[in-house]
């Protein structure tokens, strides 16, 4: 009994310790962002690896999610004779929820895991220590460019996901199932609000990008520098980042749409 209590206390303290380290890490990361003004090339390179390399999976998933949504929604809406509303419901679902959230999850899986593995490997092969000993701050040269690149890439990826999703829905709804094209677009346009729906979705995706990048980079930085440690950290990144995206989505939705 006492043992178990002790174990619980140890786990709790360990958790708090990691939480504290994570936040100190974030603070140093944010402070290091300023130095990027002089090194934009570093950020461009990272946008390539977190953004461009994630593009294909985002576009393909967006297309299929949009098509499936249209199919499902059509079957429900047609029962109410309201298939013209397909465009609105589709767009709102994508912009408010699925765009940011699914992109966030895919981003955590594709870019987040790659970030953790890369940084973990840099730690395991002493590259981070090597930089420190060359009087180069890894926060400025390694962590900050990756962080910024993720924060920039994530909303763009989410926007592409939603846009491709709407197009996929259009293909299935209008071209395949015969919903009136004019009604599809006009209903969508009159009921989707720029600030309320589109901008809130963009804010969500920026927040998700921030959190996923933070978790991924920190897990890599904090991993045990062995191959086993790196692989564990990578798994932890995907799990924690996905949970963070889902949890934050609930929080943000409650804040934004519950006025």
């Amino acid at each position: 009994m006492l043992d178990r209590l002790q174990g619980l206390g140890k786990t709790g303290i360990g958790f708090l310790e990691r939480l504290g380290r994570g936040h100190i890490f974030l603070a140093r990361l944010l402070l290091a962002l300023g130095s990027l003004v002089f090194k934009p090339g570093l950020v461009i390179r990272q946008i390539y690896s977190v953004g461009v390399l994630t593009l294909i999976i985002i576009i393909v998933s967006g297309l299929f999610v949009g098509m499936v949504l249209a199919l499902q929604l059509y079957n429900t809406l047609v029962g109410f004779n309201a298939e013209e509303s397909l465009g609105v419901v589709l767009a709102l679902t994508l912009l408010r929820e699925l765009g940011p959230v699914v992109t966030g999850l895919l981003f955590a899986g594709r870019a987040g895991s790659a970030l953790t593995a890369e940084i973990g490997l840099m730690k395991a092969t002493e590259q981070l220590s090597g930089l420190e000993m060359m009087a180069v701050d890894p926060y400025q040269r390694i962590f900050a460019p990756r962080f910024l690149a993720a924060v920039v890439a994530m909303p763009l990826l989410a926007a592409m996901f939603s846009a491709v999703g709407v197009l996929g829905g259009y293909l299935v709804g209008v071209e395949l199932l015969g919903v009136d094209s004019g009604a599809f677009w006009s209903q969508m346009q009159s009921n989707v609000d720029f600030n309320m729906d589109l901008m809130n979705g963009v804010i969500k995706s920026v927040v998700f990008g921030l959190v996923v990048a933070w978790i991924a980079i920190f897990e890599g930085f904090d991993c045990i520098p062995t191959s086993e440690g790196v692989s564990r950290a990578t798994t932890r990144t995907v799990v924690n980042a996905s949970l963070a995206v889902l949890g934050l989505d609930f929080l943000l939705t409650a804040l934004m749409f519950n006025a």
Binding site: M122, T125, E126, Q127, S129, G130
Partner: peptide, 10 residues
């Protein structure tokens, strides 16, 4: 400082 692995940037 020379690390065991060389610590070259990959």
């Amino acid at each position: 400082m020379l690390f065991q692995s060389g610590a070259l940037l990959t």
